[in-house]
């Protein structure tokens, strides 16, 4: 039996030199294992299309996993390991964009958009309320709307 598998895998190995999406590592503690899992998911394989190093089959990812494992085992914390890799591969290697002037648009843009629009909208409605209604008979329209509302609730 074992022979069949070894032949089978010899064939695969010759076709694809980068077949190894997982290694079996022994960790000292669950914290270490979880740190390893978190990090390998947050680090991007520099060689691949768009995959984290945990999922990627590329040999480079394997090296990086190995490095993350070694450093984790050596007691390095998440920040240290990330810094180590960013120093070598650049910001590209982490899926969490750094906070720096070039990325302020990315991080704060949506927040500013949200509060900016919120302020404008509230200001507008306040202003509209203080105005008088033009042209349409207000009472008549309100009556109509009340009828519609009630009508809807009855269903």
């Amino acid at each position: 039996m074992a022979k069949i598998y070894s032949i089978f895998w010899l064939v695969i190995a010759s076709y694809s030199p980068c077949l190894s999406a997982m290694e079996v590592y022994q960790f000292d503690s669950t914290e270490q294992e979880q740190q390893y899992q978190r990090l390998t998911r947050e680090l991007r394989c520099p060689k691949c299309q768009n995959q984290n190093i945990a999922d990627s089959h590329a040999p480079l990812s394997k090296d990086l996993r190995q490095k993350v494992f070694e450093m984790t085992k050596a007691g390095k914390n998440e920040q240290e390991i990330k810094q180590y890799l960013v120093a070598r591969y650049g910001d590209f290697v982490t899926y969490q964009p750094p906070m720096k002037p070039q990325t302020w648009l990315l991080w704060f843009g949506p927040v500013i958009l949200f509060f900016g629009v919120l302020v404008v909208v509230i200001w507008q409605i306040k202003q509209k309320q203080s105005q008088k209604m033009p042209s349409i008979d207000l009472i008549q329209q309100q009556r109509l709307e009340d009828i519609l509302d009630n009508h809807e609730d009855e269903h």
Partner: peptide
């Protein structure tokens, strides 16, 4: 052989 210097250099291929 193990690509350790490659890793320090940031080699990706």
């Amino acid at each position: 052989a193990k690509g350790s210097l490659g890793l320090d250099l940031g080699v990706y291929g």
